[in-house]
Design a protein around this nucleic acid. Structure first.
Lengths: 153, 153
DNA sequence: TCTGAAACATGGGATTA
DNA sequence: TAATCCCATGTTTCAGA
C-alpha cells in the first residue's frame, strides 16, 4: 500500500474537505473525534505535505449558460504538440487538456453555450490534426478521492 | 450573451472563489472594491441561485499514491448501459463517468497506483463492450470558468 | 484546554435608479 | 419602491501558547 503515511483520521479529513471545503475545523473534529486544534494541525500538515493543494468553489456550468460539454480528441504529429498546447491554453472554453498515449495525442474537455461555439472551437483546432468530437449526454458527479486508498489500494 | 444576470463583480467573485474557496470575504471585497457584508450578500445569492454548488479541496492524487491517470472509452450496446453505470459507481478508482455520443458510449477517468491495478479495472469493465485505454502523460491544470463568459460567449 | 485575534452574519440607515 | 451599498456590532471560528 503506497499510502503516504496517512492514517484513517487523515483520510476522513480529506473526505470531509472534499465534500465541503468550508466546513469548520471544529465540525470536522467532532466527526472524527478530535479537538479543533488537533484537527487544525492535521489539516495544516496535509497542506504542507502537498496532499491538499488548494480549495476551490464548485460551479454549475449550465447556470452560467455553458450547458454543453464535449470531449475532443486530437491525433497529431510531434512537431504540432507544443504549438497545440499553447493554443489550447488560450481557449477559455477548453477546461481540461490531457496528453495521452494511444492513437490520439490529446484529449480536451470543453464547455460551451451552443453547437455554434463548439464548431468554432473544432475548426480552430483542426489545423493540428485529425479531430474526433463527442457530445456529453450526462456526467455522473465526480467521485472524491479517499475510499480508493483504504480498500486494497 | 446567456449570462444569468451576472455583472462583472459576480464574475470576479466566482474567479476568486475558484482560485481559493477559503479566501476571506473581506479579502475578496477588497479586490473588487466592495465591503465585506456586500460581498457576503453576493456570495450567498450565487449559492441560492445554484451557480456556486459547493466548495471542495483540491487533492494531489500522486501524493496519495495514485500517480497514474488513464482515460478509458467503452463501446457497448444499449442494454448494458444501466448495468455499466451501476458498476462504475462501485469502482473507487473511477473518478469521472461521462456518457457520450459517438462510437464510444462512455468515457471514464481513472486514477490508479499501478499498471496492475489499471489492468484489473480494464478487465472488469471489458464485459460491457470494447474497451480503449490511454495513459495520461501530462495534464495541464484545469481552467476555471469565468473568462469564457466575458469574451463574446 | 484556554484565550486573543480574525472572520462572519445581521440590522439600521443612506444612496441610487 | 426596490435594490444595493456601507457601517457598526454581536457571534462564530481560528491560531498559538
Amino acid at each position: 500500500m503506497p499510502n503516504s503515511g496517512l492514517d484513517r483520521l487523515d483520510i476522513s479529513i480529506l473526505e470531509a474537505l472534499q465534500e465541503n471545503a468550508r466546513m469548520p475545523l471544529s465540525e470536522i473534529g467532532r466527526r472524527i473525534g478530535l479537538s479543533q486544534p488537533a484537527t487544525s494541525e492535521r489539516v495544516k500538515r496535509l497542506e504542507e505535505r502537498g496532499i491538499v493543494t488548494g480549495y476551490g468553489a464548485r460551479i454549475d456550468p449550465a447556470a452560467l449558460g455553458l450547458g454543453m460539454m464535449a470531449i475532443i480528441r486530437i491525433r497529431t504529429t510531434h512537431e504540432h504538440i507544443h504549438p497545440a498546447l499553447r493554443a489550447f491554453a488560450e481557449m477559455p472554453h477548453v477546461i481540461e487538456v490531457h496528453r495521452m498515449t494511444g492513437e490520439d495525442c490529446f484529449l480536451l474537455k470543453v464547455q460551451v453555450p451552443s453547437p455554434g461555439q463548439l464548431e468554432t472551437i473544432v475548426d480552430s483546432i483542426a489545423r493540428f490534426g485529425a479531430v474526433t468530437t463527442s457530445l456529453v449526454l450526462r456526467s455522473e458527479p465526480a467521485k472524491p478521492l479517499g475510499k480508493a486508498l483504504l480498500e486494497g489500494a
